[in-house]
Design a protein around this nucleic acid. Structure first.
Lengths: 330, 330
DNA sequence: GTGAAAGCGCTAACAT
DNA sequence: ATGTTAGCGCTTTCAC
């Protein structure tokens, strides 16, 4: 391993001169030429750890994600990665596999690795989260879940829900089945759901059956297999595209046809929702923009600047083949 | 930031004693108790960089992946992550966005960050790759592409292709359309394809039309929209599940029905291939096992042990609704 | 069992 | 423009 000292010796100069040369300080043309050559020959690369030890800045940003197999997560991550690269930062991804304790644990782990900042794709925000964030003393940006007193960027979940609910009403439907997730999840289980329900309940003569499931495909499929045969609903709302896909699969299995037997919609704007037949009506979230904004904000925070603490990003209803006007026959 | 020095001062002992205490060396019960308490109170955590500066070992493994939005990649990554965690290693993921130069670049970047080893989900292996691997002097494990003289773990691609080709033949088909990827990709474009073609060509009276596309959904969709209307094929083979999904979408758009108008198969074992209707026949690769094996091997390498340099993992044909016996009418 | 001291590779005053 | 020096937080001889 060739070090700054070796270079210095070979060039017959002091370590500090080499250091200055490396970091763009003023050096004479002659020494520069000599150093250029030696560095090239030896293939010297600085020891990041020794640098970090002084600099207190590693140019690494850590992210904590709940799972690797989510379209939304990957879209956001890809965007974060791209933006971070532009700014000469390195991305470290840690996966919690939906384990909340691990989420907190990873905050500490990343802090130990001296990342300059952390972007947390949060599932929930517990006291342990707050304690960890306070303890590590590095900027943390929360994505997807709002939390008092922390820096967050979230989607307009209530509005998304309301849009979709209104869409269903506009199509003339009265009887609804709503697959949603537990209230523990504030963004989806509370806000998005409330938006949907508020929109539906604005009209007096609607009938809504609520089914609680979770984010997994298989669980949603099971629930759908249970519920679909007996339902009289003409419109099935699902809290995520993933759930919608599961319901669609169940419908196929049961010999039900979408949108003839019922309309179906999800949330998320996942690519697969557009490629299945019929394509699924959904709400599209600006993942790319979210990623870009996250990076811009976390870097501001790293540099000690002030930012708007709580941002909300708008989204867009995408009408597709899976939702149609209520047929008068029903 | 509380350091070992602070702890030492508070405890009235030397830094070295604290260090020994921290690293399981021999300390008296009394000092241990005192130190226990102080460390707890202060919430001390060692500075990883200072440690690494001496230790030359960071317990970090770097991975280089071509894209974040691939089912296969995510499945492998999740498995690697899980295994690594068990062994107290930290995973660093870097994304190249399908850019080959960046792949090489990232080898150097990760080396600078002093990862103990690199797992590379390779797309191709160029001279630049070999040069980089030789230069950084840390163990590199290649996944998915074989390469002379390097440590690799690959899928039995030829066999996978051959299995699928044989399946198509067994169903009585004679006319085939084969969507494949360029030969640059050795694993898929060469081996997998050759397996398919060899199986088909074993029978003299087969007719095969080959369409070259790439890994992207949209490109495959375009090609399919071009080709499907005119084809007389009764079985469409696709080099990946992603391509198969694109063909399926095109078929729907064109009003063609699978498997009535033609049978369809992919490769990869992606989840979505099982949830669409009809579900798609595919070859399932053991991603989880691949991840686990990768971790086991890279750690062996890191510890300076010898390993089997070139491993091949078997796979499994999954027959689903999209492929059926050739109807005698055609 | 414990402490003093050297050193890992680098940066950053400060002096020349 | 260049060299000297100190020090980042930690580990590791080597005495005691």
């Amino acid at each position: 391993m060739v070090t700054i000292k070796d270079i210095a010796q070979q060039a017959g100069v002091a370590k500090s001169t080499v250091s200055r040369y490396l970091n763009g300080g003023s050096v004479s043309k002659k020494t520069k030429a000599k150093l250029d050559q030696i560095v090239n020959e030896t293939g010297y690369t600085p020891n990041t750890f020794a640098q970090s030890l002084k600099a207190k800045k590693t140019n690494m940003i850590g992210t904590i994600i709940p799972r690797l197999d989510s379209f939304a997560t990957n879209a956001i991550l890809a965007s974060i990665d791209e933006e971070l690269r532009k700014k000469q930062y390195q991305l470290i991804i840690t996966n919690t596999n939906q384990n909340i304790e691990r989420e907190v644990e990873n905050i500490y782990t990343l802090a130990k690795q001296k990342v300059d900042g952390i972007i947390l794709l949060a599932t929930v925000v517990t006291e342990a989260h707050r304690a960890a964030i306070a303890a590590v003393g590095i900027p943390v940006l929360l994505l997807g879940q709002s939390a008092e007193g922390l820096h967050t960027i979230v989607h307009q979940e209530y509005e998304a829900g309301f849009k979709m609910g209104s869409h269903a009403i506009d199509l003339g439907h009265k009887k609804f089945l709503f697959f949603t997730v537990p209230e523990e999840d504030k963004a989806v289980g509370q806000l998005r759901s409330k938006g949907v329900l508020d929109a539906l309940r604005k009209y007096p003569d609607t009938f809504i059956e609520i089914i609680e499931t979770n984010f997994s495909f298989s669980k949603a499929y099971e629930k759908a297999m249970d519920v679909l045969p007996a339902t009289s609903a003409t419109y099935v709302l699902c809290a995520t595209d993933n759930i919608a896909l599961a319901v669609m699969k169940a419908a196929h299995t049961l010999g039900l046809s979408i949108p003839n037997d019922f309309s179906l919609s999800g949330f998320g704007g996942y690519t697969v929702a557009s490629i299945v037949t019929p394509s699924i009506t959904t709400v599209k979230y600006p993942y790319k923009k979210l990623g870009a904004l996250s990076v811009a904000n976390i870097i501001e925070l790293v540099e000690g600047k002030e930012i708007v603490s709580n941002l909300e990003l708008p989204n867009e209803l995408i009408k597709r083949e899976s939702t149609v006007y209520l047929k008068s026959s029903k």
